[in-house]
Amino acid sequence: MKQRTRQTGLATRDYAQEHPYTTAGVAIGALGLLAAYLLCKRN
């Protein structure tokens, strides 16, 4: 299991390095969804 987790981490890092704009877009989208969720939950 530990080996598989390491392989997944390495694959994720490699993808992020090859596709920085896509990775940034996904991260910004996730933060936007989290903010929207928190704002809706607050009301």
Rank of each mutant, 00 (worst) to 15 (best):
A16L: 01
L34E: 07
Q17C: 05
Y15R: 02
D14R: 12
T8S: 13
Y21P: 07
G9Q: 03
T22E: 15
T22H: 13
A16W: 02
A24K: 05
T23W: 02
L34K: 11
T8Y: 13
G25W: 12
L31E: 10
T12D: 01
Q7K: 03
A36L: 10
H19Q: 06
D14V: 15
I28D: 12
L31P: 14
L34M: 11
L31F: 14
L31K: 12
T5S: 13
A16K: 00
Q7M: 04
E18F: 00
L10Y: 06
G29S: 05
V26C: 08
T12Q: 05
T23P: 00
G25V: 06
Y37M: 04
G32K: 14
Y21E: 15
A36H: 05
A30T: 15
A11W: 00
D14F: 11
L38M: 09
L31N: 07
Y15S: 03
G25A: 11
R6M: 01
L31G: 10
Q7L: 03
G9M: 00
T8C: 08
L10P: 03
R6Y: 06
P20L: 07
P20D: 09
A30S: 15
I28R: 12
L31D: 06
R13D: 10
E18A: 12
L38N: 09
L34Q: 02
G25R: 15
Y21F: 08
A36I: 13
L34R: 04
A16I: 00
L31R: 11
Q17M: 06
L38Y: 08
Q7H: 04
V26L: 10
G29P: 11
G9V: 03
L38F: 13
L38T: 12
T8P: 01
D14S: 12
R13E: 09
L31A: 13
L33V: 06
T23I: 02
P20H: 05
L31Y: 08
G32N: 09
T5Y: 14
V26K: 09
R6A: 01
T5N: 15
A11V: 05
Q7S: 01
I28P: 14
Y37D: 01
L34G: 08
R13S: 10
A35Q: 11
L34Y: 06
T23Q: 02
I28K: 11
A24S: 04
A24V: 01
V26N: 10
G29Y: 04
A35V: 14
T8R: 11
Q7P: 04
P20Q: 03
A36K: 07
A30G: 15
P20C: 02
E18R: 12
A35W: 09
A11E: 00
Y15F: 07
A30N: 13
T22C: 14
T8L: 11
A27R: 00
Q17K: 10
A16C: 04
A16Q: 01
A11R: 03
A24F: 00
I28G: 09
L33A: 12
L38S: 07
G25Y: 08
I28L: 14
E18G: 05
A35T: 14
A35N: 12
V26M: 08
H19K: 07
P20K: 08
T12P: 01
T5V: 14
T12Y: 02
L38V: 13
T22S: 15
Q17E: 05
L34H: 10
G9T: 03
V26E: 08
T5H: 08
A27I: 05
T22Q: 14
